[in-house]
Each structure stands twice: as structure tokens, then as C-alpha cells.
């Protein structure tokens, strides 16, 4: 990670319902690149409707309205929701491999347990954990495991879902 990456424009989580067609992901990423908007993370997958996919993209931009409007112009993009962290459940999954001598394994596992991280692979001199959580929680775990030596790190990209109404809603509308 470079120094300049530490200061970045505000991050916004956008949830896009798109037509499930070849090339749609390329259109979305090309549109963002073309307009100079930086993608922090991106996750794409099917929805309950086989004709639709959902793209969750975290964009760094001072001009989020412009980002949304430009994405809306893509013919295959059907809806866009901006998910505010306070009104959404945001999750990331991480696989992290740390260097551990056999004697240090217990200590690393203790740290991992606090974060409900599971051991998914053990090697002679490494341990691999799987953990799911809020992006901030994952970053905390990385910091605590850093002294062991992080050998490899894989993140899924953020996914998010808006929080449901806590009182009886006037009407319910499911999308995707």
C-alpha cells in the first residue's frame, strides 16, 4: 500500500441491480474509470432472480451524486442504492495467512478467537484464518496479527444490505 492510498476521498457503498448479461461488470468498471472515480472494492454475484445480478461497489469520490448519475446512464443498470453505513449491514470476508512457528500457534489462535476467526489451513510454519465481519473489524485483526508476519491476505470485497425497518412498514417491495 502506498502512502497516497492512505488519504483518499470519502468512500461510498453503492449497491447496483444490473441485468445479468455478459459485459455488464466491464461497463460498470469502465464507466467509473472513464469518469476518474476510484474503486476501493467490488463484489458481484447473482440475486434471487436469475435475470439480475448485484454489484456492490465501494467508490472513493467527492462527487458521489455524479457517480450515481453516470452509472444510471448505463442501459443495463436497473437500480442503484447508496447504503449509508449507519443504515446498512456491511460485511467483508478475509482469508489471512500468518507466519507461526509451532510454538507461537496458540498465541495467534487466541487473537483470532476474539474475532471469531476460524482456522482453515495449517502449515508447518503458517496458519490461515477465515473471518467475516465489518471492514473495521477485519482491519483490527490485521493489525493484531501483523506482529506474527502476514504472509498473504485475500479480501472478498465489501457486500452490504440495507437494514430493515424496525416498525411495521407501509408496504414492502423486494428488489432482486
Amino acid at each position: 500500500m502506498t502512502v497516497s492510498a492512505l488519504s483518499h476521498p470519502p468512500r461510498h457503498t453503492l449497491s447496483l441491480i444490473v441485468e445479468n448479461r455478459p459485459g455488464v461488470l466491464a461497463r460498470v468498471s469502465s464507466c467509473l474509470a472513464r469518469r476518474g472515480f476510484n474503486i476501493h472494492s467490488l463484489a458481484v454475484g447473482p440475486t434471487i432472480d436469475p435475470g439480475l445480478s448485484r454489484i456492490t461497489v465501494v467508490v472513493e469520490s467527492e462527487k458521489i451524486e455524479q457517480v450515481k448519475k453516470q452509472l444510471h446512464k448505463l442501459i443495463n443498470v436497473i437500480r442503484i442504492f447508496e447504503l449509508e453505513p449507519s443504515k446498512a449491514v456491511e460485511r467483508e470476508t478475509m482469508l489471512i495467512r500468518v507466519a507461526t512457528t509451532p510454538s507461537a500457534r496458540t498465541e495467534a489462535i487466541e487473537v483470532a478467537n476474539i474475532f471469531k476467526a476460524n482456522v482453515v489451513d495449517v502449515g508447518y510454519n503458517s496458519l490461515t484464518f477465515e473471518v467475516t465481519g465489518r471492514p473495521a473489524k477485519l482491519n483490527d485483526l490485521i493489525e493484531l496479527l501483523r506482529p506474527f508476519g502476514v504472509v498473504e491476505l485475500v479480501k472478498s470485497g465489501r457486500i452490504a444490505i440495507g437494514r430493515a425497518a424496525k416498525s411495521k412498514p407501509a408496504r414492502i417491495r423486494a428488489v432482486g
Binding site: P22, G23, A26, R27, S30, R34, L74, I75
Partner: peptide, 14 residues
């Protein structure tokens, strides 16, 4: 062609 013209068209089809 579809990739090259993605940012230079309103929409394109393959």
C-alpha cells in the same frame, strides 16, 4: 469492438 466502443457509445451489443 464492443470493449473498444464501450466508452464511445451510448450502448452497444454483441
Amino acid at each position: 469492438t464492443v470493449g473498444i466502443t464501450m466508452p464511445t457509445t451510448k450502448h452497444n451489443y454483441f
